Computed example of a mutant assay.
Amino acid sequence: MSLTVKICGLSTPETLDAALQAGADMVGFVFFPPSPRHISLETARDLGKQAKGRAVKVALTVDADDATLANIIETLRPDILQLHGSETVARLRDIKQTFGLQVMKAMAVETTADLAPLPGYAAAADRILFDARAPKGATRPGGLGAVFDWHVLENLDLSLPFMVSGGLNAGNVAEAVRVTRAGGVDVSSGVERAPGTKDPEMIRAFIRAARATEELSVR
């Protein structure tokens, strides 16, 4: 089974093209002003056209209201909504019913206790993304370059597709996949030379390293 590779927080035509050319399965766009990766709707329109038909487009939001989601959907035409805030199971269901799009719910993980809400989210979402828990006082929930203990997910019994995020880079992605047996990986800060500034060569290196894990798994 092939690994799904997502490059998140893309904000320029050049870095998006690097991700697409290197074979990213998913490309993520951030709509959350506190993030250095936040993009305007105008930028989203152009990047969305560039990515159309070449990769799955993911719109990342944090506790966004319906009006905000509607504007993003109209502009980007995403395939998946990534909900990265404190959205409840009921909110997930409302969003799916209102907008008719797939929903990926991000869950912050530090210990096994953080998995307690998983059954509820798994019943409502189409995909789960496990990310490192942000430290207290952080202004945003993800993209902070922090790694969580992947062994928390080691014996996870989840029928839903899931991805791992949080501090991944070309050097550790193979170990993350080996420990978690995740079907997908998601990187943002791990392919940046500065916060919010993606590096094309780092993007290519990450995707090469992620694809190499597929070769190992079939040997």
Rank of each mutant, 00 (worst) to 15 (best):
S165K: 04
G142W: 15
V191D: 10
A67K: 09
T111I: 02
A59E: 07
R133V: 01
A113Q: 10
D94I: 10
E42R: 11
S159V: 06
Q82A: 15
I203P: 00
S189P: 08
K57P: 14
K136Y: 13
E74K: 13
T88E: 04
A70E: 14
L153W: 01
R140G: 00
V5Q: 12
I73M: 04
F29T: 05
I128C: 03
N71T: 12
P119V: 04
P117G: 03
W150N: 01
L144W: 03
I203E: 04
R181F: 03
L144H: 00
P36F: 01
D157N: 14
A170D: 13
K6Y: 10
E214Q: 13
P195M: 15
T61A: 06
I207G: 07
D65H: 01
D46N: 12
E192V: 12
A125C: 09
A116C: 01
D66P: 05
A170I: 07
D65P: 01
L76P: 01
S40T: 14
L16A: 08
M104I: 14
Q21S: 15
L76G: 02
V164G: 00
S11L: 07
T112S: 14
L158N: 02
E214I: 06
V62A: 02
D63N: 14
A113I: 01
R208E: 12
P119C: 07
A106F: 02
N169L: 12
Q97V: 12
A132I: 03
A123G: 15
R178S: 08
A59S: 06
V27S: 07
T98P: 05
V187F: 04
D25Y: 05
P141G: 02
G171S: 06
D149I: 00
G120F: 13
T15K: 09
V147I: 13
T15A: 11
R127K: 13
L69F: 09
V30R: 08
A132Q: 03
A106E: 10
L16Q: 00
T213A: 15
L69T: 05
D94H: 11
K198S: 04
R219W: 13
F29I: 10
E42A: 14
A108K: 09
D46P: 14
P135H: 02
I39Y: 03
R193C: 12
A132S: 09
I207N: 08
A106W: 08
A18P: 02
D114P: 03
G166S: 06
H151K: 13
G143V: 04
A90S: 06
D66H: 15
S86R: 15
A18T: 02
P33V: 03
S11H: 08
L47F: 05
D46H: 15
L10Y: 02
A22S: 13
I80A: 15
A176K: 03
V179S: 12
V89D: 04
F32D: 04
V152A: 00
E110D: 14
I7N: 10
A146C: 10
R54W: 06
R127E: 14
V89L: 05
L144G: 00
L10N: 00
L20R: 11
A209E: 12
E154V: 06
H151T: 11
A55F: 11
D199Q: 04
